[in-house]
């Protein structure tokens, strides 16, 4: 159990060179967008990972509130951090790709704006957890649940807002070979992110246990002789 995340990390490390080789050597260059489309193979899986861990964070926060479970709390924190991390990746690579193909980094495309809003929600989650008043982990959990529920609403709201702005070209249909490469990259990134979330969750549980152990050690023998 303890070594599963490290095994995943190793597998991901082994898969990454193959991914890069496959992306750059074995996959045809997309006709319309040219070589810059190679960013796609890591950008899109990162976006999916960002959404997935946002939902996982919301669900884990719900379990945390219902069961008062440390495990779920640790998972929620780790998933929240991964959402923010993947979100940074998506939000930086997106404009880089846009700059190469559309000629402008920020088009105000519905997906761009809704990803940015989702990212803001989860940054707020981490901020509340880190700097909130005492007992703010329940508020943070409520925020995470709200954020996960908000995902489709945000997307739809941004879409209706977009109708008042000019439309931009979106990725059309892609050949099967590109999708296959995408899935290989998705597998690598997925293993990496699951491993990192796993390690982070274990750390968060460890931190909770350590805090409790310190308090216990402090109150039992240390009460007689406070230094």
């Amino acid at each position: 159990m303890k070594y599963i995340p490290y095994a995943l990390l190793l597998a991901a490390a082994a898969l990454f060179p193959y991914c890069v080789q496959r992306v750059f050597l074995h996959t045809p260059i997309e006709a319309e967008m040219g070589t810059a489309q190679k960013i796609f193979y890591f950008h899109v899986p990162l976006a999916w990972i960002c959404m997935l861990f946002a939902v996982i964070c919301g669900v884990a926060a719900g379990v945390q509130l219902r069961r008062r479970s440390d495990k779920a709390e640790a998972l929620a924190v780790a998933a929240g951090e991964m959402t923010v991390l993947a979100g940074v990746g998506v939000l930086i690579t997106g404009p880089i790709w846009g700059d190469a193909t559309w000629g402008t980094p920020w088009t105000g495309d519905a997906r761009q704006v809704s990803t940015a809003l989702l990212w803001l929600v989860f940054v707020a989650y981490l901020l509340v957890r880190e700097y909130g008043p005492p007992n703010s982990e329940r508020i943070a959990a409520a925020l995470a649940i709200f954020g996960a529920i908000d995902v489709p609403i945000i997307y739809y709201a941004v879409k209706i807002w977009k109708t008042t702005h000019p439309q931009t070209g979106v990725v059309g249909s892609l050949p099967q070979s590109m999708w296959n490469t995408l899935f290989v990259c998705l597998a690598a990134l997925m293993m990496l992110s699951i491993a990192l979330v796993w390690i982070r969750a274990a750390q968060a549980r460890m931190a909770i246990a350590l805090d409790q152990a310190w308090i216990a050690a402090d109150t039992q023998p240390g009460a007689a002789q406070p230094a």
Binding site: L117, V121, A124, F146, D150, I154, A157, V158
Partner: peptide, 10 residues
């Protein structure tokens, strides 16, 4: 602000 953006956009 992030959480109320959807309703404000509508």
């Amino acid at each position: 602000y992030p959480l109320t953006t959807p309703v404000l956009l509508f």
